[in-house]
Amino acid sequence: MTDASALYELKGLSKRYTRGKETVAIFDELDMTISQGDFIAIMGPSGSGKTTLLNLLGGIDRPSAGEVLFEGRRIDNLSQGQLAKWRARNAGFIFQFYNLMPTLTAAQNVELPLLLTSLSGKARKERVKTALDIVGMVDRAGHRPGQLSGGQQQRVAIARAIVADPKVLLADEPTGDLDRTTADEILQTLQLLNKELGKTIIMVTHDPEAASYAARELHLNKGRFEERGKA
């Protein structure tokens, strides 16, 4: 049975690594449902598998066993090419170290995901402008990453993540490289995207303060989830 309202369903998800002759289980038989419009913070100690889980949700890695369903369709058994197309259509990624292309301007960086669509050049430009406007970076559109601060780069990265209007934003320690003030600004932006635009956000973080911006906190420890309620 699949949950019609669920964006993601994880069923009996396992991930194991082989280290020499030893097989190490990151997590085993994990079940979870993520609904459309959720803002989830995944927390847990180092090595607990937070990033691995995010990779599985983003179609970057494959599980050792179990299923990852997105809108009721399995994505864990798609080919590399199908996964690439799935990511382009459905997922926006935000990295800890921004990962902008150093040779491109902010606007060109934001435009990158749109190259995978059939939008015209004019339509792409409008989308880029809107995305940069949402993150307050329109006036820096012509700047290269090297000319921007860390916080500004992360804003551009967020604009790149939302420009193709994906259903889910996957963020791995999005504020891990930023000072508190800038981190709060970024988290407020993510919160805005969740509340105002209804974006589903799954964020991995070590930072309890960052996690406090999320609607749900899931703690991954020893291969199991523990959900902690929000006040």
């Binding site: 690439a84 990511r87 990962n99 292309m101 990158l112 995901p113």
Partner: peptide
């Protein structure tokens, strides 16, 4: 390598 990985993450196919 890192930039290529980013492109792949965004959905650029291997071909």
């Amino acid at each position: 390598t890192r930039e290529i990985a980013v492109l792949k993450t965004l959905g650029f196919t291997e071909p």
